[in-house]
């Protein structure tokens, strides 16, 4: 319990729009242990970004609204705090980097000033001390000629460099948790690898936890200790990275895996996409969110939400699927530990 640095319980977020209320996040629970990487995976619009942004308190409210749940950082409740209290953990205990480094830094401030701003605000350093520390931080993220670079503006940096600068900025106050919202999506593949390597290295040296949001399973396999798969505003499967890849227990996870290209020779094999489209979150389905697209859907899936099943013999591997019910039929492709299967 004590090594759980962040614990999110039953988080729900809605957005009021002209078209009605979008239930973007529908009861999400997860936790992050000290020093580990949790990857949150899912397709666009599944609510993974909204989840972390709600925890950080940076979704615009209105139209956004946190309708339930809690988030505890080191045991302290941090969900929905007013700006003044929230700023005691934002940038201090939790650092955050975003998808597009090109637009995530203020274009009219030098990189150095943006990093030292965090230090001045939270650590009460003088401009001079903060600037010197900012250069050190840039150095730590392997930016060459850090002193010169600190005096430059974002438009003088490349995308990869900017993401390094973003990381340097988020690490300014030695946060316990780094939230990375698709940190490599906007970068090309070689730069992606460099950034991921940098993050992994800093995680070791700084002993921080990382919440990595991504839709790239290759990134997950490389970086994560544990994985939470999100679909239609819910976590449908979570577990260790091996659980997710080798003992997939939810048809959606299986579908994601099959939609992934492989480099293992079978070039003629066509990718099999998940047919259909995600449910309309203005009117989320009564039953399982994946019902309409699931090749193994049963009658019960349409009308009743599946509970989170803890897979037998495991303390962390969970799946939100009726196929894990004791009475469910055996499915050879899924990892099942239900009673029927055991027979």
């Amino acid at each position: 319990m004590s090594d759980r640095i962040l614990e999110v319980d039953n988080l729900s977020v809605e957005f009021a729009t002209y078209g009605g209320t979008v239930k973007a996040v529908r009861g999400v629970s997860f936790h992050v242990n000290r020093g580990e990487t949790l990857a949150i995976v899912g397709e666009s619009g599944c609510g993974k970004s909204v989840t972390v942004q709600a925890i950080m308190g940076i979704i615009p409210m209105p139209p956004g609204k946190i309708t339930g749940g809690s988030a505890r950082l080191n045991g302290k409740d941090i969900l929905g705090l007013p700006a003044k209290q929230a700023n005691q953990f934002r940038g201090v205990e939790i650092g955050m980097i975003f998808q597009d480094p090109m637009t995530s830094l203020n274009p009219t401030m030098t990189i150095g000033d943006q990093i030292s701003e965090t230090l001045m605000v939270h650590r009460g350093l003088s401009y001079k001390d903060a600037s010197a520390l900012a250069v050190q931080l840039l150095d730590k993220t392997k930016i060459a000629e850090a002193a010169k670079r600190a005096k430059q503006y974002p438009f003088e940096f490349s995308g990869g460099m900017l993401q390094r600068a973003m990381i340097a900025q988020s690490l300014a106050c030695n946060p316990a948790v780094l939230m990375a919202d698709e940190p490599t999506t906007a970068l090309d593949v070689t730069i992606q690898a460099q950034i991921l390597e940098l993050m992994a290295e800093l995680q070791r040296t700084e002993n921080m936890s990382i919440i990595l949001i991504t839709h790239d399973l290759a990134v997950v396999a490389r970086m994560a200790d544990r994985v939470a798969v999100m679909y239609a505003g819910q976590i449908i499967e979570s577990g260790s990275v091996d659980d997710i890849f080798y003992r997939s227990s939810h048809p959606y996870t299986l579908g994601l895996k099959e939609a992934m290209p492989s480099n293992k020779g079978d070039r003629d094999k066509k990718l099999s996409p998940i047919l259909g489209s995600p449910p309309d979150l203005f009117h989320p389905p009564v039953g399982c969110g994946y019902f309409a697209r699931c090749p193994y859907a049963m009658k019960v899936c349409e009308h009743q939400q599946p509970p989170e099943y803890l897979l037998a013999g495991d303390t962390t591997h969970q799946a939100r699927c009726w196929l894990q019910h004791a009475g469910a039929p055996v499915n050879k492709r899924l990892y099942q530990t239900g009673a029927n299967h055991a027979d």
Binding site: I58, N87, M96, F98, D100, L105, V121, Q169
Partner: peptide
Amino acid sequence: NEDYIKTAKAKGLSPLRIFFKH
């Protein structure tokens, strides 16, 4: 609505500071 305002919030800056400086 720019991303860097979101960054400024995530950095834990006060609303007043975000308003004037960013």
